[in-house]
Design a protein around this nucleic acid. Sequence first.
RNA 1: UGGGGUAUAGCCAAACGGUAAGGCAACGGCCUCUGACGCCGUCAUCUCUUGGUUCGAAUCCAGGUACCCCAGCCA
Length: 555
Amino acid sequence: MSTEQTVSGNFLRTIIDDDLASGRHAGIVTRFPPEPNGYLHIGHAKSICLNFGLAQQSGGRCHLRFDDTNPAKEEVEYIESIKESVRWLGFDWGTHLYYASDNFEQLYQWAEYLIQQGKAYVEELSAEEIRNHRGTLTEPGTESSSRNRPITESLDLFRRMRGDDFPDGARVLRARIDMASPNMNLRDPVLYRIIHAPHPHVGDAWRIYPMYDFAHGQSDAMEGITHSICTLEFEDHKPLYDWFLDNLPVPCKPRQYEFARLNLTYTVMSKRKLHELVNSGTVSGWDDPRMPTLVGIRRRGFTPEAVRAFCERIGVGRSDSWIDVSILEECVREDLNERAPRALAVLRPLKLVIDNYPESQVEEFEAANHPQKPEMGSRTVAFSREIFIEQDDFEETPPKGFFRMTPGTEVRLRYAYIVRCTGVIKDEQGRAIEVHCEYDPASRGGSAADGRKIKGTIHWVSASHSIDAEVRLFDRLFSDPNPDRGGADYRQFLNHDSIEILPAAKLELGLASADSRQRLQFERLGYFRPDPRDSAPGKPVFNRIVTLKDAWTKK
RNA sequence: UGGGGUAUAGCCAAACGGUAAGGCAACGGCCUCUGACGCCGUCAUCUCUUGGUUCGAAUCCAGGUACCCCAGCCA
């Protein structure tokens, strides 16, 4: 059934396979149920890949359902962005797009049904009073006098709640379960509250809105969901989830299963904190390339393939886990190494003059677009007497093991010639501003005529055959692996060097017309792509997606 | 302190009573016109801990310990 890639089993896969094998279910139906109150992030990607992936692998289907039960926090903007991000990740819900709000009438009827059964009642205590009645983790709650209100009275009150007879907060509908339950969720949870706010999907049709607990399971049931997969913190809600399904005439009984949410190092994932980063101007927006949002990593240049590979690689379990962000970066490298054409670019230019090269001469060298993939073709790059090399590739007094350019030794200019450094010109501060060298005319193309081995190869760009471009380098948003650690203010761990803008990098000519759909490897530097928002025709602004692995600077 | 969870290598994660998969990282080596890529090798006598059952335990039982979640009219 599945392809050659052996997907290692996880506990959810096992449950589904068993259910299929035992005939408990003829087909699998899952759902991804975001609340449209913010943008999706990499943690959601894990859930999306899980839900859609599990359904896909078992020939079932996965629904996209908006859990839009709280109009005070939800917006159309988020609905659209979420749809866009799920599609970008590569998943298709087909015709199965749902909104919990489309079920409001049925949910309302079911709420009346519970009242009639004596299993729900209208409460007039304030939020604070309800809290005080709830008890604590170790002490049982106390029943409110509303609990024994006659059914007809609750029914009348509930209908008046719907009919807009009360202001926000004046009444709620509660389930009548057990104020002494050790599970706080069962201490007569609130089912409906009054909110006077326009709803992003159903407009002003309602004044009362169901709580998550009253909407989620029933919506699952109405959609015929077989496996309702959510994160661990909802485990305590499962008895409530089941209570509704057992006490209401629902068409089927989905089962809830929980998995551990994704935690990524050097970032934050809570919607509240992401909102704060955006609203405080710490980042430029939800799609800032440093953000863990899907719109952010998309703009940065990560591919959906890489994100999916990441979700596959990290696995699924029930123990709290912290995934190192370098695993995500490695997935991006693996994907881009295969498909990104190579190019030459110098980020921090240092002029190199080849003294014995004819003043006005220009040569063209052939450069492979991918060293392992001749089918990706080649291009020509212009070479002349004055070129730019990377500042990091020159050291007047090199550390041990350095085999780039240094006075007296030879180095290869990729695809061009072998040169020997003859000297350096420095400014008053002692910084190299111009390096001089002589080339070996017999090494045209980069290979020595006598077969001598040249250890170092550096990249370059011809001074008069290059364009200037802005290049943006991104680093982790936080300097601590876990900015949430110990309840401290995560903002104190902000990495103030998380973005570096290089205003005048030198790029080989062909890059002037680079399109934001292209992702390139700048040889020896990393993977880059033109920023889709800030690039202009003929004037790209490049984002560094991720660096190349570097065994040298690591030492 | 009530309830619900989780503990297998630096980070994830398999193993379902039969003798600790795999990935990432790390380390050593090879290759190399990208210090990239690729390739080869090394990497848990042991599964939080203490006892017990068993011919045999990461798996079963009992007791500890640590960490996470729950007292929203959020999801």
